[in-house]
Design a protein around this nucleic acid. Structure first.
Lengths: 337, 337
DNA sequence: TATCCTTACGGAATTCGTAAGCATG
DNA sequence: CATGCTTACGAATTCCGTAAGGATA
């Protein structure tokens, strides 16, 4: 048995049992992968995969049982390397962050800048995706740390901690009638044409749920992954937008500073009373060794996060906090234990 | 990096950093071990061991940190093999039991016989030692399952469950004055010359504590590891003995059956009122895959142990039950959760 | 027929043992 | 000077690529 064989098995599972892709992903030859897996199966005395003719169709029961051990082994091998880097005094390193557009665009610039100031040698890589992709990037160890509002808490192999809360806001041109409204109602919104997030991101589910509960079906003109796109189409008059509050901070500052704002400037109206509060969470893969600059970065994300708290969470002190829905979480509950 | 290097590191630590012994233990050449470790250190970028000249003196801080990962990796590699054996349908296998003399001699014959009846292909290996050795055999994966009354609960990496309770009994020849006593006192015992267990085994600590609390210092004629030796010397008139009740079951049966017992036959008198109840525990190494015959054997050990309960305990559902003292445990507390 | 796994084979790299060297206590 | 780690070197093995073969959808 050797580690290479285990890597092949893990990657093959991740690539839906396609050995050709597996070989490509691991920069080696396909026959080599095939042979290695067969030899491993022979040594262990059981087939890991069911073969239909010459094609791998599914994983066997012992294969499934062994996969957990394989994942654990390779995770710890990764940890050995990380610990090596850590103690070798190599301040250099790579901080790989998986996150959604909203976080990358509006929330992370501050923390990332500060991290770069403190650790100039650390290269930061931002991986952007929808929350499910963020989770997957953590689980496959493509990313060291993840940040998203959904999906993270649902995975058992992720450790998540609340980072900050935010609410949705309505985005309209200053001249729009709703701009003056202090507390718009669902009915008022439903009367408009809306420009919303795509259902996979940034609390869109909360919005749908609120309308559904009120038995309203708003017209949706356009769905977008990111807030900038939404704002662009609102400016074009396609409809009124609903975005995360942090996406409007720049406009809020500009409006406050300007003496005579233009009528087509965008303004925002809080909608927390309609859609509730959202909690953005930071996540790590359970059992993965974190270099100190990863922890330092986590601390930069929220005044509520400190080294001791992170250590406890990573040790598993807080029971898996996933409530299934993944969306409605009370941040306080994670700490009080 | 390869698994062989990791095996060398693990074994070197277990052998007090003596690479010559390490090589011998792993059936390979000493220069090979030396080279492999150096290459691993080079690859990881840090030294695992501190060297004084050409001698390894201690483990470095990163070495210590990495050791946890190494242990985890090798444990899971072992699990892969065990899972392979399990699913390969090889009913054959080896059940390695680590235990103390008292368990091996008086308690285990029943369960072992029954296991052999159910799994004729399984070879049973009994490893005997004092409780600390039992714990070590489990931790080094020399044994699959351990059974002892002390020491097991103190180790964090062991999962332990209560198996049965027993009390100490006084052992005297039938003609001895104390043989007729229903509830001997500590004072009566202290007036005798005693033949006891060695301090490392079978609840001897409880006996010492009881005398100490009563400010009595009994004369001890002889200390022995096993009950048979104690009984032998009691027969010779060296003193009165104190052993585990189960060590006297054979004599109890014989005495009940015999019409006219001889005066030098040994009889026992319960001493639970003086030394309390002892709990013999079964233990496994945390995270090690257990073949089904190991679990079946565990179930044979006590009517209180069943598959579901074992599964929960091994999953970590019961918090580490170690109370530090390791001796006084209430079995019920392990279950009610 | 295109995709994809397996087998066959040969050169390159790695592994592992023996022999010799040298530092420590 | 006995123990014990390291270096050196060579043979055996393993690894891993390319090329060819055969099964499936």
């Amino acid at each position: 048995m050797n580690l290479q064989q285990l890597r092949f098995v893990q990657e093959a599972v991740r690539r839906n049992l396609n050995l050709t892709e597996t070989a490509r992903a691991l920069h080696t030859s396909q026959p080599g992968v095939s042979k290695a897996i067969r030899e491993l199966e022979q040594e262990l005395g059981v087939d890991l995969f069911v073969r239909h003719g010459k094609r791998l169709t599914r994983i066997t029961e012992p294969g499934q049982a062994m996969l957990a051990s394989v994942e654990s082994i390779l995770r710890e091998v990764g940890n050995l390397k990380r610990i090596g880097d850590e103690y070798a005094g190599r301040e250099a390193g790579t901080l790989s962050i998986a996150t959604t557009h909203t976080q990358a665009r509006y929330f992370l610039p501050g923390p990332v800048t500060e991290l770069r100031r403190r650790y100039p040698q650390v290269q930061v890589v931002l991986h952007q995706g929808v929350p499910e992709q963020v989770a997957k990037m953590l689980l496959t160890e493509v990313a060291d740390i993840g940040l998203a509002t959904e999906a993270l808490a649902a995975h058992d192999d992720l450790v998540t901690l609340p980072c900050y809360e935010w609410e949705h806001v309505l985005v309209v041109p200053r001249a729009h009638p709703l701009a003056a409204e202090k507390r718009p109602t669902l009915e008022q919104l439903a009367a408009q044409t809306l420009v919303l997030y795509h259902p996979t991101v940034t609390g869109r589910t909360r919005i749908d749920q609120a309308f559904a509960r009120a038995r309203l079906s708003p017209r949706v003109a356009l769905e977008a992954i990111d807030s900038d796109v939404i704002k662009t189409y609102v400016r074009l008059g396609l409809g009124v937008g609903i975005v995360a509050a942090q996406a409007m901070q720049e406009e809020a500052r500009a409006n406050a500073a300007a003496a005579a704002p233009a009528d087509d400037d965008l303004v925002s109206v809080p909608l927390g009373h309609l859609f509730g509060a959202n909690v953005t969470r930071v996540a790590f893969k359970r059992g993965v060794y974190l270099r100190h600059f990863v922890l330092a970065f986590a601390e930069l994300l929220s005044p509520r996060l400190n080294a001791a708290l992170l250590a406890r969470a990573l040790k598993g002190d807080f029971a898996a906090a996933g409530d299934g829905s993944g969306a409605a979480a009370e941040p306080a509950s994670d700490y009080q234990l």
